[in-house]
Design a protein around this nucleic acid. Structure first.
Lengths: 155, 155
DNA sequence: TATTGTTATACTCTATAACTATA
DNA sequence: TATAGTTATAGAGTATAACAATA
């Protein structure tokens, strides 16, 4: 009963609007690259080489799903499966040159073109940043996968 | 290239953490009431009577999905279908006494117990509120459904 | 025996299309 | 004819379980 209303529209309700707008933004981004949500989430993690197991863990997917996702990225030439010579069970996932290019573009677009904060002045964005940083404390940054969950809107 | 970093962790990345935490919060809430995400989203809209068509529109679902969702809420005694006497095609959805009780509890829990902002002082929450309000502008408040999208986590 | 990845399968969420009852 | 709701069905996203290869 303390954390409640700061005005008529509650803080939590504002966050709903923010989330909604972020979602639209992220879905529009990945659509531009013709990536599905799981594909995009996976690719964004492959700025460093990972085993499929590690990737599953990052994305909080069951490992069984990684096969098909990596298959599709590999078919598009964005990722390569390399057999780890030190343990021939594991597939080391490495982004190709093209994969890294797409990854970089997508990441920049996701981060920089978030439409939400463009109405704020620089000092206001800095304030917002500080407040959110304090609010989240030491929570680790999550994967973009959170933003991609749920179906792509029809519309 | 203007809306970019305010520090090393970008604003957009902070939002990911915030949204992730919100997501966990909402899913934990609805699990306590043994509601699925679509059930919860629907129930939260039934603080006023709606036709199934109107409910579908609010939730941005295709109308065909409403049948099963309302069926399950009706079986639990949370919602009643009343045939509109002025147009016998439409089913007027009305929350039962129990439905309204659950709705109220759920809504309060969602709004008040958001864990994220409890580390902020009152004045900081007010600041955050003001900044977000400016950022979102005149965007209409969305349904909670946005927060519920995606599968419930296993774990 | 334990672990990586694969396959088969099932379940949930959502959309599309065809149907019915009513208007 | 058009609209509200229902049914059947399809597709995407995910999880579980059994299996093969390797450790």
């Amino acid at each position: 009963m303390e954390v409640v209303a700061t005005s008529e529209v509650r803080l939590a309700e504002l966050m709903l609007v923010v989330l909604d707008q972020f979602r639209e933004h992220t879905h529009a981004c990945i659509a531009q690259f013709d990536l599905s949500a799981p594909q995009a989430a996976a690719l964004l993690r492959l700025d460093q080489a990972l085993s499929q197991r590690e990737l599953a863990s990052c994305l909080k997917y069951d490992a069984s799903n990684i096969t098909a996702i990596v298959d599709s990225l590999a078919e598009r030439g964005l990722v390569e499966r390399q057999i780890d010579p030190s343990d021939r069970r594991v597939r080391r996932l490495v982004a190709t040159t093209e994969g890294n290019r797409v990854l970089g573009l997508l990441r920049e677009r996701l981060l920089d073109e978030a439409p939400l904060f463009q109405t704020l002045r620089d000092d206001e964005r800095a304030q917002l940043h500080a407040l959110l940083a304090k609010a989240v404390g030491d929570r680790k940054p999550t994967a973009w996968v959170e933003m991609f969950r749920g179906p792509r809107r029809s519309e």
